[in-house]
Design a protein around this nucleic acid. Structure first.
Lengths: 214, 214
DNA sequence: AGGTGTGAACACTTTCACAGCA
DNA sequence: TGCTGTGAAAGTGTTCACACCT
């Protein structure tokens, strides 16, 4: 479909969607680029540019149909499909993510949890998913047709587990380990690193930079 | 000190520091921009440009002194000071963050935890910090000289608690709530939003974009 | 009037390529 | 020789300003 869409644009689209979903959904309600920009902390021109990259679905003089725009955004972001997610690592981060049930509602279904701690393997989470042994990673990825793997293991284990997951068919990685994962072409990685965010904050505070929303 | 340093540069500096800290620290060891780039998944020119924004502390023909560079990076990022952090919200995210003791080691000391659930208030975490009532937020921020507040509460409560924390003296916010916080000038915000990361992954997978490390 | 869609201007970042020092 | 530091070039992302539609 589209060419060169920047990461910042994609993140803003996700944000716009969340804003729309947070609104009262009166049928036929419209929303203008100015309103959206207000809530997203950006400019109206930016909103219009972002959306126009995917077609023109606003009504001049009126704005965008709220429901329609939300649907379009879901389509653009690829959220019509339910993504099958495996959680690698049943530690603190893993369990916090798992218990945050909002993912399911948003189209990310955690279909498997793996860990290498014998004390955790075999326990059943939320009476649903059973923690499986990390040594069976390949089998689980194949059995569950896993699309996305959340890497929530210590740095030392992250690269090799990632490689195994990718070899078994996973195409997306959400990485919580504090290292740069190397993956073959065609596999996407997104990193989440709270220490880096705190250090960015520290830098800002130290150098008295602008208000700086992330 | 410095002028206009981009967010991406700051994030890379944090990454370089983590890479250096992960290495065997032989005394006098040096590291070249090429090596650093390798581990960080960027280019040698990018590394050199990033570092040169803050001075020239490499040795031509040799590279950078590993220990020296790490110290410089800590200085640049403002990590010489220990930041006093208050955790707002003792739920899943809050407790996962708290138990991840690495923060302390990295210069971010969680000196207070607050929540509005009477069932949680009064309990003692890790035998150290006692969960306090969120209604006493201002008093706690002042008493503990809190610099940074981690917002780990539901979206509905995030804005008002942020305002109160800022009014009481907090200058940095690490925001886990899925809304755009509005803060006065001089206050820094960094957002962490796992749903957005997953949606970015979904976009990538749907549109078959490049390998894309985040 | 009100608000979108978009080319063109601008600002910012990354990459290149090479002078210069150890 | 090896690798840094850096201007200049190339490439990206954002903002402006206005034609155009309702």
């Amino acid at each position: 479909m589209s060419r060169k869409i920047s990461d910042s644009t994609v993140r803003r689209l996700s944000q716009y969607l969340r804003i729309l979903e947070g609104r009262e959904k009166a049928v036929g309600a419209t929303v203008s680029s100015t309103e959206l920009a207000q809530d997203a902390g950006t400019t109206a021109a930016q909103v219009r540019k972002d959306l126009s990259l995917f077609g023109s679905f606003g009504k001049r003089g009126l704005g965008y149909g709220a429901g329609d725009l939300a649907d379009r955004l879901r389509g653009i972001l690829g959220l019509e499909k339910v993504w099958r997610v495996a959680l690698l690592g049943a530690g603190r981060i893993g369990s916090a993510l798992f218990e945050y049930g909002d993912f399911r509602r948003r189209g990310f279904d955690i279909v498997a949890v793996l860990d290498n701690d014998p004390g955790k393997v075999g326990s059943r989470w939320s009476g649903a998913v059973e923690v499986e042994d990390a040594s069976t990673l390949e089998a689980v990825v194949e059995r569950e047709s896993v699309d996305v793997v959340i890497v929530a293991v210590p740095a030392a284990a992250a690269q090799s587990l990632t490689e195994r997951a990718v070899a078994a068919g996973a195409r997306g990685i959400l990485n919580f380990a504090p290292i740069q994962l190397r993956v073959p072409d065609g596999v996407s990685v997104q990193d989440v690193n709270v220490v880096t965010e705190l250090e960015a904050l520290s830098f800002d505070l130290t150098h008295r930079r602008r208000t700086g929303a992330a």
